[in-house]
Amino acid sequence: MSRSSSDLVINLASVAKNWRTLKSRLAAKCDCGAVVKADAYGLGMGRVLRPLVQAGCRTFYVAYLEEAIEAAERLRSLEVEFQLQPHACRLLVLAGCEPGDELDFAREKLEPVLVSEEMLQRWLAALEAAGFRPGSQPAALKVDTGMGRLGLEPEQFAQLVQNPKQLSDAGINLLMSHLACADEIEHELNNTQLKRFERSLVQIKRTLPELKGSLSNSAGICLGAEYHFDAVRPGIALYGGKPSLDYDALAPVVELNLPVIQVRDFPEGGCSVGYGASHRFERPARVAIIAAGYADGLLRSLSGKGECWFPSAKGEQGWFAPLVGRVSMDSVIVDITHIPAGAVRVGQCAQIIGDKISLDSLAQAAGTISYEILTSLGNRYRRSYVNTA
């Protein structure tokens, strides 16, 4: 049995469906983009871009220049395939441009999100030195409204808007910020950030009246129309994660099935399993060893907490089975004592993510978020892509 019998199935039709579902929540003039950073959250950016473009998405967000160059090459070929105008698809780089990279952005028609005054000045100086016409290269500007991460401080922003020529020469066409607590719908910081962003947008539109605003990620979309502004930036929701409770309409995207490599009986009981002897059977027990571990994205925090699902070969419902002992690098141990003898066999696959165990359920068991689960899924899985609605 090959190790590649571990199947990570990615439904591209569901990615497109989720984008359309999110788009349907927005006003007609609000742009629904797609965050495809970190290799589309580990699912394969090159494969994910096509169904999104085909569904109508035209704005894409990545974290760094290297990701943007890879995405741009793929998008240019998709523009030809779908008979779109050249550069119909926009690419924004959320971490902006590092020193020395400014002209790579300009040459590749990539849009940096300028997150500091220093970055803005570098952008302007590089474009001027290279002879670009002022305002000819687009960029976004980010203001920090409460995340405490990337972005201009409100005081810095207030000073910057006093120099409209700089903003115009820098090609600023979008003002952005990022919500810190959007997945907690009642959190008071959501409204605080909303008001701060509204004030910043009013300030900058006095000099750049055509400028657009973008505040919301996947969870922010769920907070209501007042958070949508002109553009939204969903990520995890495209890939089947539910950043808030109001996402039941989203389709699951990922299914992970892992093979059993050994079934063992402990007829006498009184034995321990796994590193540290962290789980002990005081009764007769049967276990299945599954071929995946923390090297494959099954986080060590799942030790003694997660579960898997074994379907019945006879078409019956099947059984949940708990993970016992510590998650190892390459394997996990599952207690199958309660499952009829012979129902779980070597070579049979257990579902870790799918219709019985959702991505968010697995994340909750691990004490983390679905973002971490998806981006941790290792490259030892055999990835297969389907297009079933």
Score class of each variant (00 low, 15 high):
S278M: 11
A295S: 13
E226N: 15
R345V: 11
G274M: 02
E73R: 04
V161C: 15
Y64T: 13
L127V: 09
M119N: 01
C181Y: 12
E184H: 08
M176V: 14
V232L: 07
G235A: 13
A295G: 11
G56V: 05
E73G: 15
E128I: 10
D248C: 03
G318I: 11
A170T: 10
L223K: 05
A71S: 09
I333F: 07
D246H: 12
R233S: 05
L124P: 06
E372I: 15
P243K: 06
Y247K: 05
V386T: 03
N191H: 10
V36Y: 00
L258C: 12
V327R: 06
Q54E: 00
I172D: 04
F281Y: 12
H187I: 06
K195A: 13
V232P: 01
P243R: 13
E98M: 14
V62R: 04
G148I: 03
I369Q: 04
Q162N: 07
E102Q: 11
P311G: 06
T368W: 02
S301F: 02
L208E: 10
S384V: 15
F281E: 10
V93D: 04
P311Y: 14
V202Y: 06
P138N: 12
S2I: 05
V287L: 05
E268N: 14
R280Q: 03
G235S: 12
E188V: 14
S278H: 05
Q137Y: 08
T375E: 00
A365I: 11
Q317S: 11
L103N: 00
P138G: 15
A180P: 00
R280T: 14
P209S: 10
R149D: 10
K142H: 06
G33V: 06
D7K: 14
G378P: 10
G347S: 09
L91M: 14
S370M: 09
T388L: 00
I373C: 02
I369A: 01
V287W: 02
V48C: 04
S4W: 08
R122G: 04
